[in-house]
């Protein structure tokens, strides 16, 4: 390129458009260099995110907390906000009145209209027990 030899004030005309030959600002050169370094560093070191282990992902161990996470927002769709009944019946006290075995059966195999939520989501036995524990806490 011949621009280096041109004086900075030199102005020429191309296609009727005047153009100057101002120099590249120093801070831009620093930006170019910084980005180039970052790119190499990132290419070599960056790893994909995996936050699945942090919450809800534990398949072993029984706790009402884990059960709540599993119930999440799914059960509320049919059983209403706060699980007080909607399209499906209320879940408050259901484990006491119907018995743990009955509720486990429904979770695993589905009810009259209810989806077999445990089977469809491949829940472990511990996870099913966690959900039962969480349901007992619904008042």
């Amino acid at each position: 390129m011949s621009e280096q030899h041109n004086h900075e004030d030199h102005i020429d005309e191309v296609n009727g458009m005047k153009q100057g030959h101002g120099k590249v600002p120093r801070f831009l050169i620093i930006v170019y260099a910084a980005l180039a370094c970052w790119a190499v560093f990132y290419a070599l070191t960056a790893k994909g995110i995996d936050e699945t282990a942090n919450a809800g992902g534990n398949t072993a161990g029984v706790s009402a907390e884990a059960g709540k996470a599993l119930m999440g927002q799914s059960c509320a769709l049919c059983h209403g906000q706060n699980y007080k009944g909607g399209l499906g019946p209320t879940l408050a006290g259901v484990v006491d009145t119907k018995g743990e075995e009955y509720v486990t059966g429904i979770l695993k195999n589905g009810g009259v209209t209810m989806t077999a939520i445990a089977k469809d989501n491949n829940w472990t036995d511990d996870q099913v027990k966690s959900v039962i524990a969480a349901m007992k806490e619904i008042k």
Binding site: Q73, S74, L77, C78, L87, T113, T115, I117, N121
Partner: peptide
Amino acid sequence: PDLMWVGSRTNAQWNYQHLKNPQKLV
């Protein structure tokens, strides 16, 4: 919400009624 696995947390009856009138159920 995401629908990738929606079939495993809803049932047919709910989906049918919800499509017809979402505000009634939600």
